[in-house]
C-alpha cells in the first residue's frame, strides 16, 4: 500500500489533476489578457492591481500554481521514464492501426511539447512577473504599468515569433491533454468520451489562437 503514489494509476491521477489545474489557469489567463485589447491601457493595469491587492492571498495562489506545475512535471517525467524502460528494444517497423486509436502526433509528443512549455513558462515569469517595475497613476492610485511592459516586450519581433511558436505547442499539448486528463481520472462514457475527445481539439485550438492573437495585436496596433 505504501507504494501507491508510485503506482502507474496514481501517477496519472496526479498528472491529470495538476494538468486540469494548469488548464483552468491557462483559460483564466487568456481571459485576463484579452483586457489588453480593450483600447484602454488602464483596464489591464486596474485588473492587475486588483489581483495584487489580495497580497498574501495572491502569493498563496501563486505558490499553489507552482505546486501544480511541479506535480505535473514530476509525474509526467515518471511516466516518460517508465515508458523508456518498458521497451528497451524498439520496433523496426511500427505504425498505428488507425480505427479507434487516439494515437496522434499530439499524444506522441506530450513530453516534448511539455518541456517546451516549461522553458517558456520560466522565460515568461522572468520577463513579466519579475520584469521591470514601471509606476503609473490610475484613478489617483500608483500601480505597476504592466501594459507598458507587455507592449515593450511584444514590439520585439523575435519575442512575438517565439511566443506564437510556443502557442502551437500549447495547442498540441492540450489537443491530447484535454480528453486524456478526463480518461486518466476514470471518466469514460460511451456517449461523452467521443464528444470531449473532439471538443478537446476545438478547445486546444481556441486557446492557442487566443494566445496568438494577443502578441500579434500588440505588435501591430499598440
Amino acid at each position: 500500500m505504501a507504494a501507491w503514489p508510485r503506482s502507474s494509476v496514481a501517477k496519472k491521477f496526479l498528472n491529470a489533476i495538476a494538468g486540469i489545474g494548469l488548464f483552468l489557469f491557462v483559460v483564466v489567463h487568456l481571459l485576463e489578457n484579452l483586457l489588453l485589447l480593450t483600447g484602454n491601457p488602464d483596464d489591464y493595469n486596474r485588473w492587475a492591481h486588483f489581483l495584487e491587492s489580495f497580497g498574501v492571498g495572491l502569493r498563496i495562489v501563486e505558490i499553489g500554481l507552482a505546486a501544480f506545475f511541479i506535480a505535473h512535471i514530476w509525474s509526467s517525467l515518471l511516466v516518460y521514464w517508465d515508458k523508456v524502460k518498458a521497451r528497451p528494444q524498439g520496433y523496426r517497423v511500427y505504425r498505428t492501426a488507425g480505427g479507434t486509436s487516439r494515437q496522434t502526433l499530439s499524444s506522441r509528443t506530450m513530453i516534448y511539447t511539455g518541456l517546451v512549455l516549461l522553458a517558456f513558462v520560466i522565460w515568461h515569469v522572468i520577463t513579466f512577473r519579475f520584469g521591470p517595475y514601471y509606476p503609473i497613476m490610475v484613478d489617483g492610485v500608483e500601480m505597476r504599468d504592466l501594459h507598458r511592459l507587455v507592449v515593450e516586450v511584444f514590439n520585439e519581433p523575435i519575442n512575438v515569433v517565439l511566443y506564437v511558436g510556443v502557442m502551437v505547442f500549447l495547442g498540441l499539448h492540450l489537443r491530447h491533454g484535454f480528453w486524456s486528463a478526463l480518461q486518466s481520472l476514470g471518466a469514460y462514457h460511451p456517449r461523452w468520451t467521443p464528444l470531449w475527445y473532439s471538443g478537446g481539439v476545438l478547445i486546444a485550438g481556441a486557446l492557442a489562437v487566443g494566445f496568438v492573437v494577443i502578441p500579434l495585436w500588440v505588435y501591430l496596433y499598440l
Binding site: K12, V79, D82, K83, T100, Q103, M110, Q183
Partner: peptide, 11 residues
Amino acid sequence: GDCSNHGECEA
C-alpha cells in the same frame, strides 16, 4: 509502462 491514453490497444 504507464498508460498515456494513446488508445492504440483498443485498435
